[in-house]
């Protein structure tokens, strides 16, 4: 049993799951924004990273990890709400490339601001749980208390969001506002506020992912870049409309990347996302998990 758990196959699966769950989390945050406002948020990674810097930097000034985490997420939510109000709201009804371009500009601004404020920081963000891998027999399994914590947190957040959308009135209103804003308004749903809340929720989730990614790492502005691309691909392959699809695709991409890294070559690894995207979308251009809905003319 020990040797099986430590086999190359299982090692890759554990490693892939650890990244895959975080990818799924970010992909889900992209889907939330896409569903409510039909904007693909290219600055999502940078926004999460910005909020992470604001909150987690205080760890180095002696504040408790958990307080900093909470502060980061709240900052992220505020940043998301503000972004929707200031940058996105004026663009509703404009061509779809306008918000894309604006968010790309915002990505550039945020990365530059982060880099200019927090460059001196080269310390490792300490993890609240041990990152030492467990051993079975005399072999190492790529699972540590931190990995377990990470997977549990992601699972909790994912199910929390599923509950929010499926079971609560707030979630029902958010779904209705996304599906049919005008009818929702006629029923008294305050659509504008819900859009802002959608952005806040999404950026909060993205921030949580950024904190997880950065824990045990040097806090660097580029921490989210690679994983954001993977998450984007997961959201696209899952078919931007489907939260479940995004999660499944996110975990799968984590696994695929891990296997390409291990069995193929490190040179191809940067392209693995593109490969998954090409294959996934060649099979079904509208995403693997969206129901086929005829486009309205």
């Amino acid at each position: 049993m020990g040797s099986f758990l430590a086999s190359r196959l299982m090692t890759d699966i554990f490693g892939g799951l650890a990244t895959g769950t975080v990818i799924a989390l970010i992909a889900l945050s992209l889907v939330i924004i896409w569903q409510s406002t039909h904007v693909l948020n290219f600055a999502q990674g940078a926004m999460g990273m910005f909020a992470t810097f604001v909150g987690m930097n205080l760890v180095f000034h002696g504040l408790n990890y958990w307080w900093c985490l909470a502060l980061s997420v709240v900052t992220g939510m505020a940043l998301g709400a503000l972004t929707e109000r200031v940058l996105i709201r004026p663009l509703y009804g404009k061509p779809e490339i306008n918000p894309i371009v604006v968010m790309i500009g915002f990505l550039g601004v945020l990365e530059a601001i982060i880099a200019s404020i927090w460059t001196t920081n080269i310390s490792m963000l300490p993890s609240p749980f041990s990152e030492i891998y467990y051993e079975a027999g005399r072999r190492t399994i790529l699972v540590s208390p931190f990995v377990i914590y990470e997977v549990i947190v992601v699972a909790l957040v994912l199910s929390g969001i599923a509950l929010l959308f499926r079971r609560t009135n707030l979630g029902l209103q958010m779904r209705a506002a996304a599906l049919s804003p005008e009818v929702s308004r006629l029923l008294g749903v305050r659509v504008g506020r819900l859009l802002t809340f959608g952005w806040a929720l999404s950026t909060g989730v993205g921030t949580l992912a950024a904190v997880i990614v950065s824990t045990g790492q040097v806090l660097a502005p580029t921490n989210m870049d690679g994983i954001f691309v993977s998450a984007f691909i997961a959201a696209a392959v899952g078919g931007l409309e489907s939260p479940t699809g995004a999660i499944i695709a996110g975990v799968s991409i984590g696994l695929v990347e891990q296997f390409i890294l291990d069995f193929w070559s490190t040179s191809v690894a940067p392209l693995s996302g593109v490969i998954v995207l090409v294959i996934g979308l060649a099979i079904r251009p509208q995403g693997l998990f969206t129901r086929q809905v005829s486009r309205r003319v």
Binding site: P90, V101, V102, A112, S116, T120
Partner: peptide
């Protein structure tokens, strides 16, 4: 460090402003 990253900020802000005010 802010000076070193000013280019990114200036161009990002210009991009956003142009797109919003004079697309």
């Amino acid at each position: 460090t802010l000076g070193a990253n000013l280019k990114g900020i200036v161009f990002g802000v210009l991009l956003i402003l142009t797109m919003m005010l004079a697309p």
